[in-house]
C-alpha cells in the first residue's frame, strides 16, 4: 500500500510547495478566487439588484401600513353590495397596479441586463481568453460565473415576492375584485417570479453564448420575454383543474366562494351535457333550448385555495426548463474548447 502511494503522488510535493509560496494570505474580504473576479466584474449590476430590492421591500412595508389601516377600519371581506370593493379599488388599486407592474418587469430586466451580457460580453471583448488562460480550469470559472449572479438574483426576487405577498395577502379578496389569476398576483407572488426570472436569465445567458454579441443577445432575450409571456398566460389556467358549479338557467347565481376566479361559463342539459355559452341566444331561444334540453348554467372557477398549488406546478415547469438551459450552456462551453 505504501509503495503505490509513493508511485502515484510523484508530482505532489512540487505542487504543494508551489502553492505555499503564492502570497494567497494577503487577500482581503469574503470573496476569493473566481468568486471575487465574478463579483467584481458584475459588481454594479449585483449591487443595483440588491439596492433596488431593498428599496422596493421598504416601499411595500410602508404601503402595508396604509392597507392594514383600511382593513382594521372596514374589514377585508367584500360585502354583498360591493361597496367595500369599490372603496378599496378607488383607494389602493392604482398603487397595487404599479407594484405589480414593477414586479412583472423584474424577469425581463434581469434577463436582459444581467443574463444576456454575462458570457456574451466576455466573448465580445475577448476577456474570455483572459480568464480561461489563468490557472483555474474553464469548468470552475463557468460554474462561478453562472452560480453567483443566479444566486443573487434568486435571493433578491424571493425577497421581493415574499414582501409583496405579505402586502397583498390581507386584501387579496378586495384587490381587483379578488382576481388573483390573470391580473398579476399569480405571477408576482410565491415561487413564480423567482422561477420566471431564473428561466429568462438562463435563456439570456444561453442566447448570449450562442450569439457572442451583447446587443443582439439582449434584443433576443427581450423578444423571448414576449414569446414566453404569451405562452405563460396560456399555460396559467391549465395548471389546475377548475371547479364547476351548476345552477338553473333562469335562476340566481353563480354563488362562488370568495376570491374565486371565474374561468368559463357553459349551458347544460339536465343530465350534465355541456354546450357553449353562446348556444341558443338567437331568435326563438326557448324553442331551441327545449329542443336541446338545456335547463342549467355551469360556471367553472378556480378557488383561492388552488392558487399555491398552481403556482408551484408552474414554477416547477419553469425551473426544470431552467435546469435544461443551464445544462445546455455548460455542455456547450465544455464541448468547444478544451
Amino acid at each position: 500500500m505504501s509503495d503505490t502511494t509513493s508511485a502515484t503522488t510523484d508530482t505532489a510535493p512540487r505542487e504543494t510547495a508551489s502553492r505555499k509560496t503564492g502570497p494567497r494570505a494577503t487577500g482581503r474580504g469574503l470573496l476569493h478566487g473566481t468568486a471575487w473576479v465574478v463579483y467584481r466584474r458584475h459588481r454594479t449590476a449585483l449591487l443595483a439588484c440588491v439596492l433596488i430590492t431593498a428599496a422596493a421591500c421598504a416601499v411595500y412595508a410602508y404601503q402595508r401600513i396604509g392597507v392594514l389601516d383600511f382593513v382594521h377600519a372596514k374589514g377585508a371581506t367584500p360585502d354583498s353590495k360591493g361597496e367595500l370593493l369599490e372603496e378599496f379599488q378607488s383607494t389602493f388599486h392604482a398603487m397595487f397596479t404599479r407594484d405589480i407592474a414593477l414586479l412583472q418587469y423584474v424577469p425581463v430586466l434581469i434577463g436582459v441586463f444581467l443574463g444576456a451580457p454575462l458570457i456574451a460580453a466576455e466573448q465580445e471583448r475577448g476577456t474570455l481568453r483572459l480568464v480561461t488562460t489563468q490557472s483555474v480550469s474553464r469548468g470552475r470559472w463557468l460554474a462561478t460565473t453562472l452560480a453567483l449572479p443566479l444566486a443573487v438574483t434568486a435571493v433578491c426576487v424571493t425577497a421581493l415576492s415574499v414582501t409583496f405577498q405579505w402586502l397583498w395577502t390581507p386584501v387579496h379578496q378586495l384587490e381587483d375584485f379578488g382576481d388573483w389569476l390573470s391580473s398579476g398576483p399569480f405571477d408576482v407572488t410565491g415561487p413564480v417570479p423567482v422561477a420566471r426570472t431564473l428561466f429568462l436569465t438562463a435563456c439570456g445567458i444561453a442566447l448570449g453564448m450562442l450569439l457572442k454579441r451583447v446587443v443582439p443577445a439582449m434584443a433576443a432575450t427581450f423578444v423571448l420575454w414576449f414569446v414566453t409571456g404569451e405562452l405563460w398566460s396560456r399555460l396559467r389556467p391549465r395548471l389546475g383543474t377548475p371547479h364547476s358549479v351548476t345552477y338553473p338557467y333562469n335562476g340566481d347565481g353563480p354563488h362562488l366562494p370568495p376570491a374565486s376566479v371565474r374561468f368559463d361559463d357553459w349551458v347544460a342539459t339536465a343530465d350534465g351535457r355541456l354546450y357553449g355559452f353562446g348556444t341558443c341566444v338567437h331568435a326563438d331561444e326557448a324553442a331551441c333550448r327545449a329542443k336541446l334540453g338545456i335547463v342549467n348554467r355551469v360556471t367553472q372557477y378556480f378557488d383561492f385555495g388552488q392558487m399555491a398549488g398552481m403556482q408551484w406546478r408552474g414554477a416547477g415547469i419553469l425551473l426544470a426548463l431552467t435546469a435544461v438551459v443551464l445544462a445546455f450552456v455548460v455542455w456547450q462551453a465544455r464541448r468547444r474548447p478544451l
Partner: peptide, 21 residues
C-alpha cells in the same frame, strides 16, 4: 484583453486570485 472597468490594482488582484503561483 483586460476588463476596462477594473483598476490596475484590481487587475493584479485578478491575477492573484486565479493563480496559485
Amino acid at each position: 484583453p483586460l476588463y476596462p472597468r477594473f483598476t490596475v490594482a484590481e487587475t493584479l488582484r485578478l491575477g492573484r486570485e486565479l493563480n496559485p503561483r
